[in-house]
Amino acid sequence: MAYDKFNILTSTAVPLPLENVDTDQIIPARFLKATERKGFGDNLFRDWRYNADNSPKESFVLNNPVYGGKILVGGKNFGSGSSREHAAWAVYDYGFRCVVSSFFADIFKNNCLNVGVLPVQVSPEFSEQIFEAIYNDPKAEIEVNLPEQTITILATGAQESFEINSYKKENMLNGFDDIDYLQNMKGEIESFANDLML
């Protein structure tokens, strides 16, 4: 699925300082029944965001008008649990283009990269600084610079670099996905398959 190119993102951020946020919270299983990739943003963090009668839970950060922006800042071990790519779709579809955490679960991170959400892993200290900056001033902007691989808290100037492999970086910068790449090496794949025993 094609997605928007990612270059430099400057935005306010939404703080969610909980640890081990799992994919069942990001998008509960009962919302996985679509056969199209549409409308998942509405159910992002569904059970934390809404009461059983669908009224918004005021205490949850997405319902707090003070916070907003295209960056979600999560706690440690963000995205653990199931392989559902719907979790990454929901994050993207809601309007986030970047998730920041001091530690990501593998599959979630991989899924994000495949759907155009940039996962930025920072040190625990930097993660604390971001939370502090947002809580001091919800209008505080964060700059995520993919070409330079840096993340900066503009208010304080604090900066850290982050890692991303050069292949995925190219993809994100151009809005390409892996299928485009694989399609271009079909011949090589077929001759590989011909040599297999099973």
């Binding site: 599959i107 899924n111 495949n114 892996d178 299928i179 694989l182």
Partner: peptide
């Protein structure tokens, strides 16, 4: 386990990255 984009990759090319 893989995500849906990867399911699409395997269906179309029998490979993932």
């Amino acid at each position: 386990g893989i995500g849906t984009s990867e399911v699409e990759m395997v269906l179309s090319t029998q490979c993932i990255m």
